[in-house]
Design a protein around this nucleic acid. Structure first.
Lengths: 337, 337
DNA sequence: TTGTACGCGTTATCAC
DNA sequence: GTGATAACGCGTACAA
């Protein structure tokens, strides 16, 4: 069994109150007793009990983070940032893999309530009414990452999807392309689907280029596989394309892989720009030009927002994070003569 | 503020003891009172307080897992498995990113002790004396993942690195190669460095092939960058190679990328086999043939080991997990005539 | 079948 | 400066 504050008190010949005081860096004791206590603590190897502390303080110094899929590169990067920020503030992070499953998510929320986490981070998930009610009843800060809610007033941190998609497409135009296709995620995805399509279209419009529906292929999700099957479909619908905007790096890599199989050379025959700037982007052949989201930073910022909400009970403004295109080698400039 | 068991008791007109009993599925109450209590719980939306529970039970229903780098694909996969197993047993997982930093690791261990986690998982780290002492003083189960300790009696789950490296190399031989190089990690890495080199050498020896030191290039770590710089170095030392065993998928991808820049075609000019079977392996161009480690399963198995140690106080046997080569397209068979 | 009361390890409010 | 002691919310031995 481990030692308690009582043991320390006895060992140092003081009261537990005094031990508690030096433990928490309060005032009200002489230098001499402080020394005594510190020695006792060290000698016994005493470790405060977070349960007892939490019972009184009503704080756990931990936060919960929910992902649809923890093991994606996207999630990992965010987790990394969150963990870093949490660590700096002496907090721990509890990870939950919801698998986009309602029941499972609710169960996690339940668990996190019992553990009295100080705050909750929701990544890439749509907030249903059920979730929101549960969150509301928990009475703790919540911050959304890489998603937002139109129905519920939850602060979020994400990039502007439409704007970023605009930037990606516009980059292709600037590089001399005019026949630009898109491999998009699901249109029904209000957050990452439609807005990116809108951004793509707006860039074309603004540049005086026509919008053709056959230049867009929608896929189930944002995965490698989706990109792999998406490219041939798109090229069949619309053979003349010289460049493609893929709505995620995974989609882009899938497309590149597919192109390789088809004997289409990137970027000589076809240019591709991705979205996310995951580590895989620079591992691709050729290295993928892409629109970067500052994922780690987003994680850190979200965690920090959570902490200011916790500590100061303050409402907090949502944050739109900057995106930027990372030029690598998957887009070729077309020169005019 | 949230409701307590006292509130529920009052609401249901019973004592807190009774509430506690139905809460914990014990016996000793009539169907009628059970009903009353359940209703009260539901009406109030009562949530048990894990602090109070933990104070008595001395259990937190959570475990800590330490990674040198949470955001690698390798770590993520393991985390996914651990999380899954933990979820099934109503436990939570607290992630810690040690950054391979001693001080930071110790601090995490400290934190985890205070939170009274039920067990600890250590991933890919060398257990120093300092760590071990700390772990010992914590008096809780520990399981190592993808690493092991020769000095301290800690159970582990990993694949047999030497054997897996042997298998990889042997596969290349079977495919008709005889001039086989290796891009290895650091020789000083007792766990993932030297053993893989040994496995490589043993395969050659056993097949009657000569071992030449110039056919091996060592790198700092197992990263993409290491592979990228390693390949040209290796090819300079030893120009006649027809196949290469890379000690990790990241190394392999780096090498492939480098080969691409050099105009060397994989697998036509050079065959490459990797190690790990991360998701990136199938995204590579060409898709990477590699030796697979069952990472998710390793995570699950390790977590389960932890639980049996916790619940039954039993010692537990280390587990060597099976590896297997995943044939994709980065290795070409050489036919003899 | 049910209720009372003590203890888990801390912090905080009093007195001294 | 220092020390009792009452919470914090729950489980459980014991009594009824």
């Amino acid at each position: 069994m481990s030692y308690t504050i009582k043991d320390v008190a006895k060992h140092a010949n003081v009261s537990i109150a005094t031990v508690s005081r030096v433990l928490n860096g309060q005032s009200g004791y002489s230098k001499a007793t402080e020394e005594k206590v510190l020695v006792a603590i060290k000698e016994l190897g005493y470790q405060p009990n977070a349960f007892a502390r939490g019972l009184i303080s009503r704080k756990s110094n931990s936060l919960g983070i929910l992902f649809p899929e923890v093991s994606s590169q996207f999630s990992s990067k965010i987790l990394r940032g969150v963990e870093e920020a949490a660590h700096r503030l002496d907090s721990s992070v509890i990870v939950c893999n919801t698998a986009s499953h309602g029941q499972r998510t609710i169960k996690y929320l339940q668990l996190l309530t019992e553990k009295r986490v100080d705050g909750i981070l929701f990544v890439s998930e749509t907030i249903t009414e059920e979730y929101y009610k549960k969150l509301e009843s928990m009475q703790i800060p919540v911050v959304l990452i890489s998603t937002e809610s139109y129905q519920y007033p939850l602060p979020f941190v994400k990039v502007d999807d439409k704007h970023a998609a605009f930037t990606a497409t516009d980059y292709l135009v600037k590089m001399g392309h005019s026949k630009i296709g898109m491999i998009s995620g699901n249109k029904d995805d209000i957050i990452a689907g439609q807005p990116r399509i809108d951004g793509y279209k707006q860039a074309l419009t603004q540049r005086g280029l026509p919008i053709k529906e056959e230049n867009i292929v929608q896929s189930q999700g944002f995965s490698f596989k989706d990109g792999f099957t998406g490219l041939p479909k798109l090229l069949e619908q619309s053979p003349g394309l010289t460049a493609i905007f893929a709505a995620s790096d995974a989609l882009a890599l899938g497309a590149i892989s597919s192109a390789y199989k088809l004997g289409i050379r990137i970027p000589d025959h076809l240019s591709i720009i991705g979205y996310d700037n995951l580590p895989i982007a620079e591992m691709a052949i050729p290295p993928l030009t892409t629109v970067a989201q500052p994922l780690e930073e987003m994680g850190m910022v979200a965690a920090e927002m959570l902490f200011t909400m916790m500590d100061q009970g303050r409402r907090v403004e949502s944050r739109i994070m900057p995106h930027s295109v990372i030029e690598r080698e998957s887009v070729k400039e077309i020169k005019f003569t």
